[in-house]
Nucleic acid binder design. Structure first.
Length: 531
DNA sequence: TCGGAAAGCGCC
DNA sequence: AAAGGGCGCTTTCCGA
């Protein structure tokens, strides 16, 4: 059964909807959290406009729910697939969040025409004969619950450790200036380049200084510098790395984002066109390896870190139905299995061949491996090639569960086009083909990850007792990696749950496909100790 | 003075 | 050694 919630001018209105789709009479709800806690015992699927606005106040009040349907996220999926009519009430972007002084989200009235009961009916009808998309809607929605829960719980973060890492790398803080070691490096660069006024943070200035010193470079980028032999290269690369650490995750970041021993990034489910999550503020999904030393569990607790190894290659094997690639995907090290199968000679070749298949690489090692990959894995290669060709023609492609790519635009030309126009259009078409090629794999990998998370979430809840943060709970997610914060005595059980959930996600999406979704799991006292 | 673009690099 | 796909974020620069 479903319970649809709606914010009206005079409070929250709730409507029961049976599995037959027949709604009851709306009732007024005064104390939402208390009411939800009571009704949750019936294990309904909560239906609401947007998990990001409804769920945080419930979590803050100590209420966790098992299931929901996030109408806005689901609407976007179905609209993209052309399965719903345009609807201004639901087509728009996510509502702007406003925060109250106590940090809770204000619930603003929703427009009159945004009727959750009617929208639920349309969405249910759209997927009634489409079990894969129905699964996608469920996965998307449970992902939204996890996102809110991870923000609520926060990633355990030791500010003192973070400060230690920064001071170790950058030197002592200097008010209004660069930290000591960084400034010393800047001084060395000025000396080596004989540019006393150089600000190495300015790309144009730096480029001019490099060129004046006789370096033949077109940019200041790392990969170009690596090809040059010159005494300035090593200290410059070190400077760049440290300057980035300071600006992206330095003391200012620490002050802004870490409170009471927790980093609470805001995740944006489906924030990326492929269905991957994005994050809003704090750069959560780009947390540098160096700084993960500050992620330390509470006393008596552990972090369990799990990484889905070679996820996208396995996903490609499963979704394309390529039997030879699936056989390789049964091994823990899929790249080595590709070597053992005789497709290529070295593990490195297998890796680059696979990356080329997924990203559309045409040059270098990827390009060289392509014929061998096509010989060894014709079905999988044809699958991604078809996605690329469709994209080049401006067609829409879809993931395994049915998320659709945006249509390509401006990829055709007529006879009046000049040669230059034709060339540039062809380049755009090729680029869009690389995008759609990657879309089907990256998007399906994101679906697998949502299923993994959803399955794990249920298992973690069943492992412990008490409130969400008293039980083992998810605290971090980056595309194919999960981090669980758990009481130490449950860490082994959590590790098992992570592996079982991965297997379950594989079965749920690709029932029958003989691909093993291997995960590497570590139980650690620091995030940086994983792997 | 402010906002957006570009460059560059962190993550997957 | 990247490359080839997807992002977010910071700094600097430049034009409205």
């Amino acid at each position: 059964m479903y319970i649809a919630l709606r914010r009206t001018a005079d409070g929250v209105e709730a409507t029961d909807v049976g599995d037959d789709g027949i709604p009851g009479s709306p009732v007024r709800v005064d104390d939402l959290a208390a009411w939800v806690a009571v009704r949750e015992r019936e294990r309904p699927r909560w239906v609401w406009s947007d998990t990001a606005t409804w769920y945080p106040p419930l979590l803050a009040a100590g209420v966790r729910v098992e299931r929901c349907q996030d109408l806005r996220l689901c609407h976007a999926i179905l609209r993209g697939a052309g399965m719903l009519e345009p609807d201004p009430a639901w087509d728009g972007p996510r509502p702007v969040r406003t925060t109250t002084p106590d940090g809770l989200f204000e619930l603003e009235p929703e427009p009159d025409d945004a009727d959750p009961v009617a929208e639920l009916a349309r969405q249910r009808s759209a997927v009634a004969d489409d079990p894969k998309r129905a699964l996608l809607l469920a996965a998307e929605s449970v992902g939204a619950l996890v996102a809110a829960e991870m923000t609520f719980a926060g990633l355990p973060w030791r500010a003192d450790e973070h400060d230690r890492v920064l001071t170790e790398h950058l030197g002592r803080r200097v008010p209004g200036g660069r930290p000591e070691k960084l400034e010393a490096l800047a001084a060395r660069l000025r000396e080596i380049l004989d540019a006393p006024a150089l600000n190495p943070d300015s790309h144009p200035e730096l480029l001019r200084a490099l060129q004046n010193a006789g370096l033949r470079v077109e940019s200041t980028s790392k990969w170009e510098l690596l090809e040059i032999e010159h005494p300035v290269v090593a200290p410059l690369l070190e400077y760049k790395q440290l300057a980035r650490l300071l600006s992206a995750n330095g003391w200012a970041w620490l002050d802004q984002w870490v409170r009471d021993g927790r980093f609470r990034p805001v995740y944006v489910p489906a924030g990326v066109v492929t269905g991957r999550w994005a994050s809003d503020g704090g750069g959560a999904l780009q947390l540098p390896k160096q700084i993960r030393r500050a992620v330390i569990p509470d006393p008596g607790w552990k972090l369990v870190v799990a990484d889905a190894s070679q996820l996208e290659p396995r996903v490609l094997a499963a979704m394309s139905g390529d039997r030879a690639m699936a056989r390789a995907g049964q091994q823990t090290d899929m790249y080595q299995a590709i070597v053992d199968a005789g497709a290529v000679e070295t593990r490195r070749q297998a890796k680059y061949g696979m990356l080329g298949a997924i990203y559309g690489g045409t040059t270098g090692e990827s390009g060289r491996m392509k014929p061998r990959m096509e010989r060894a894995f014709p079905t999988a290669m044809a699958y991604v090639e078809a996605a690329a060709r469709a994209g080049e023609r401006g067609e829409v492609v879809r993931t395994w569960l049915g998320r659709t790519s945006p249509p390509g635009t401006g990829l055709g030309y007529d006879e009046t086009a000049t040669d230059a126009q034709k060339r540039s259009t062809q380049q755009r078409a090729a680029a869009w083909g690389r995008f759609t090629r990657n879309f089907v794999v990256q998007g399906t990998a994101a679906e697998w990850a949502l299923s993994w998370m959803g399955s794990l979430r249920r298992r973690l809840w069943d492992l412990g007792s008490g409130s969400l943060v008293e039980r083992p709970h998810l605290v971090f997610f980056v595309h194919d990696e999960l981090v669980v914060h758990t009481p130490a005595e449950l860490a082994d059980a959590v590790a098992d749950a992570l592996r079982e959930s991965a297997a379950e996600a594989g079965r749920l999406l690709f029932r029958g496909a003989p691909v093993e979704f291997a995960v590497s799991v570590g139980i650690v006292d620091r995030y940086s100790d994983a792997k």
